[in-house]
Simulated assay, not measured.
Amino acid sequence: MSFDLRRSSHLSRLLESLRLERGLRPGQLASILGASNSFKVGSLIRSFELGGPITTHWLEKLVVELQPNPSDLARCLELDQQEAELQLEQDRLAWESWADEPIEPFLTIRYMPAVYGVREVPKAFCTPRENPEDREWARERAEDWAAAELKRFRGKGFLNWSRRERTWFDERGINPQRRPVTFEGRAAGAWMQLSGSQQKFLLDSSGKLITQSYGLDHPC
């Protein structure tokens, strides 16, 4: 059983039309599909019809039960694939442009699971340097500072040297590893979000909420 999330527009509208042809409400269809919680799964079905995600498990059950015409099914899948590829390319271009923008380096700290804060890197390590050796020296000193901060807070974290370069640390600032950030790994950021809210936030050094910059403007 797969629990990958799927989104659709053409296919979801096709399945919605077949549900309506049978005079079924989403909850009734969920019961027919064998859902133990017909209200919850009915809400999932309706959300999918409106463009939200659905698990592969329930999508496969919908297709088996509603039995769309094979040619209509193939056409919808093809159109959805084309639109998904176009959207992915647009997201990639937006991310590449965003990732090229310069930032002031900062440290992301995971105080505990799902609780994140940030610290600005001392300016002495951030001054632009033309010489590669000087730049490497500055980054090494910034990594030393980050390790000390993480040890002080007994947390994990990563140094955001740029939007394309990070140094990851295990708990207490040990085992630093430099890793590039790519579009494919773009979700490797860190922030907090309340249930039901779209607002992302972090904590600053005084415990106040941060809602801008520090990766919170991630485009996709």
Rank of each mutant, 00 (worst) to 15 (best):
Q82N: 09
V181T: 08
S9L: 12
K200G: 05
L159F: 09
K61V: 05
G196A: 06
L86K: 15
H10N: 09
W98K: 00
E78K: 14
L5V: 08
Q67R: 12
D91S: 03
F48S: 00
R178N: 13
L24K: 02
Q212H: 15
S17R: 10
R25F: 13
L59I: 05
E21G: 10
W168L: 10
V63H: 07
S17L: 12
K61T: 08
F169N: 00
V41G: 01
I210G: 05
R25C: 10
E49G: 03
M1S: 10
G215Q: 05
P102L: 07
Y111N: 01
V41N: 01
E171Q: 11
Q81P: 02
L20V: 13
F39S: 11
A148D: 08
N131Q: 14
E101C: 06
T127W: 11
M112S: 14
S205D: 07
G34M: 07
S47L: 12
E104G: 11
Y111C: 01
R13Y: 09
L150P: 01
D72P: 01
R6M: 10
E104P: 06
S213I: 08
W191E: 06
G51L: 02
E143Q: 11
W191H: 15
A94I: 00
L18R: 07
E149S: 04
S205H: 08
F3R: 12
R163G: 01
S47T: 14
R166E: 08
K61N: 06
L86D: 11
S97E: 06
T108K: 05
S47E: 12
F106H: 14
M1N: 09
E120Y: 12
K123G: 11
G52S: 04
T211C: 11
R135P: 07
E136P: 05
K123M: 14
W98T: 00
N160L: 14
L202Y: 04
L77W: 12
D134L: 15
S205C: 11
E85R: 15
W168Q: 05
V115R: 04
A99P: 01
Q177V: 15
D170S: 06
M1A: 13
D134T: 13
D72H: 08
V41S: 03
R92I: 00
D4I: 15
S36F: 11
A124G: 12
G23D: 01
L93D: 02
E21A: 12
C126F: 10
Q81D: 13
L202P: 04
T167Q: 07
I109F: 04
E21W: 08
E49W: 01
N69D: 14
S36Q: 13
F153A: 12
Q177H: 08
C76H: 01
S195D: 10
G185F: 03
S162W: 04
Y111F: 10
I174P: 03
V121H: 06
L93S: 01
L150V: 03
F3P: 05
